[in-house]
Simulated scan of single mutants.
Amino acid sequence: MINRDYILRLIEQFSRALARVLLLRQDYQYEEALILIDELFRQTLGLSSEFLLAAPEEMLLALVKRIDLLDVGKCLWIALLLKLEGDVYQDLERYEESFPRYLRSLRLFLEAVLLEENPRQSDFFAEVEELLTLLSRHELPASLLTRIMLYYEKTGRYAQAEDALFEALKAPDSSDEVFGQGLAFYARLQEKSNAELRAGNFSPEEIKEGLADLQRLQEAHRSPPSAE
C-alpha cells in the first residue's frame, strides 16, 4: 500500500474546513464554498487552483515529485481539492470550469492510485470511478487515456482497458509512444490465463484481433499520405 500519512494528516487537520465546504454546497452557498477551497489551496500548498490548471502537465507532475519519486500525499491532496472545486462548479452548472479541474484531478489520482498493488483497495477508488463517469462523454487527451488504460488493466477490466487504448490512438495528441504502450499492453495480456481474461471480459481471440488492429493502425500512421 502507498504511504498516505501526509494526506491523512491534512484531512484530519482540515476536516472541519472540508466538512464546511460540503455544508455550504448543501446550503447552495457555492461562492462561499469556492472561497473556502481557495483558502485550503493557499494554506496547504501556497498555490491557487488557477496556477495548477494553467501549468503545463509536465510542470504539474514535477510539483508532486521529490527528485524522481512521486510525493503521493501531495499528489492526492491536490487531486482531492481540485475534484472538490470541480464539484462546486458542477453544482453551479459552470461545466467549462468543472471540466479542466476534473481532468487534472483524475490525472493526479491515477498517478498515485496506480502505485497501489490493488487500486480497488485504495482509499480514493470511489473518487477515481466517479471522475471516470463524469468525464466519460468527453474527448480526453492521449496522455490521460493511456493512464486510464493502465488503471483498467490493473483492476482487471481488460475490455475497458482496450477501449481506452484505442481512444488514445484516435486522440489528436496521440503519438508513437501510444503504439508502444499498446503493444506492451497486449504482451502483458498474453501472459494471462484464460480464466483471468474471462474475468476481465476478454479472450485470447480478442488479443489477436486487437493486436492486429493496432498493427494496422501503426502501419497507417507510419505511411506518408499519398500524393494526389
Score class of each variant (00 low, 15 high):
residue 110 L to C: 08
residue 111 E to P: 06
residue 112 A to C: 13
residue 113 V to P: 12
residue 116 E to V: 06
residue 118 N to K: 05
residue 120 R to L: 12
residue 123 D to Y: 11
residue 125 F to W: 15
residue 126 A to T: 05
residue 127 E to P: 04
residue 127 E to V: 04
residue 130 E to P: 00
residue 130 E to I: 01
residue 130 E to K: 06
residue 135 L to V: 00
residue 140 L to Q: 10
residue 142 A to M: 08
residue 142 A to F: 09
residue 143 S to W: 10
residue 143 S to I: 06
residue 143 S to N: 09
residue 144 L to F: 02
residue 148 I to M: 10
residue 148 I to A: 04
residue 148 I to Y: 02
residue 149 M to E: 03
residue 150 L to W: 04
residue 150 L to D: 14
residue 151 Y to S: 02
residue 152 Y to R: 13
residue 152 Y to N: 06
residue 155 T to L: 02
residue 156 G to R: 08
residue 158 Y to C: 03
residue 159 A to M: 07
residue 159 A to H: 07
residue 163 D to I: 10
residue 165 L to V: 03
residue 166 F to P: 01
residue 167 E to M: 12
residue 168 A to W: 05
residue 169 L to K: 07
residue 171 A to I: 02
residue 171 A to Y: 08
residue 171 A to S: 13
residue 174 S to D: 02
residue 175 S to N: 03
residue 175 S to P: 00
residue 176 D to L: 10
residue 179 F to H: 11
residue 183 L to G: 01
residue 184 A to Q: 06
residue 185 F to A: 01
residue 186 Y to L: 11
residue 186 Y to F: 15
residue 187 A to R: 12
residue 190 Q to N: 15
residue 193 S to V: 04
residue 195 A to T: 15
residue 195 A to W: 07
residue 195 A to Q: 14
residue 198 R to K: 15
residue 200 G to M: 07
residue 201 N to I: 04
residue 203 S to E: 01
residue 204 P to W: 08
residue 204 P to Q: 09
residue 206 E to Q: 15
residue 212 A to Y: 03
residue 212 A to M: 04
residue 212 A to E: 10
residue 213 D to Q: 14
residue 214 L to C: 02
residue 215 Q to H: 06
residue 215 Q to K: 14
residue 216 R to K: 13
residue 217 L to F: 05
residue 218 Q to P: 01
